[in-house]
Amino acid sequence: MAMPHFEHHQPTSLEEALDILTRHGAEAKLMGGGTDLVMKMRAGALEPRHVVSLGRVAGLNRISYRDDDGLVIGGSTRISEVAAHPEVRRHYPALAHACSVMATPQIRNMGTVAGNLANAAPSADTAAPLLAYRASVVLVERGGRRQVKLTDFFKGPGLTDLEPGEILEAIRVPAPPNRCGSAYQRLSERSQVDIAAVGVAGFVALDLAGAIIGARLALSAVAPTPVRCPEAEALLEGQLPTPELLRRASVACVRASRPIDDLRASANYRRSMVQVLSLRVLEQCLALAKGESTPRV
């Protein structure tokens, strides 16, 4: 399939990018690393007249972390840059792990975390950890900015809350509390390259007595969008972690999933694996929160 013919724009400021985007409306598509967009254009699935590249927009490629403010990932920051960032690895190991194992080294060097979210694949590897960390996205348009919780951002396969004329400027992630742990596990038939068949991310925070004061679980590739598991989270919160409690929570995670049969896995297999991976993720989170292990990124 031949590529559609388009005009290519490389704005160097956010204002310029927003102007181009507003001028061309529905005829324009934003490009981060191009790993999704170029594929879709080549396959004939998208035929934009204008491609607006974010790669040279000043100030958009950044990672910053502050103990009081948490993490900010800019809209053009590459997946491999997030994977390698020392403070991401230290404070957000589930995200660092997702960014280290997804796709291939080449794709991670090209693709952006913002693009992974905006593309809104149900299997998006960065989505589950970011949901577990209660991330928000900052969307900017010519008239101003709004911040949207990631739980409200995904609307369906390939669909988000992003309006035409808006750019995903940054991802904001709250700073983690003391005595917390987080983890991400994914399963695919091949260890690399392939899209995940199941992904589970978790976050657990403990109080001084060892009771769970915060628990979040998120799933990818098992529903039309990446999803949180509110029932499992409610079961865990306020409780002392016991093997039986973790088992019940992992079963509750299965109820948050709505998997389909496809070439990567059957729905039944996905449900079984949601339970297995949820339990493993919770055990990993607890070991980290108790200081019994250190993050494996």
Binding site: Q10, G34, Q106, I107, M110
Partner: peptide, 10 residues
């Protein structure tokens, strides 16, 4: 990087 997915203009 994958040069097949990289636009030359990029």
């Amino acid at each position: 990087v994958s040069s097949c997915l990289t636009l030359a203009v990029e």
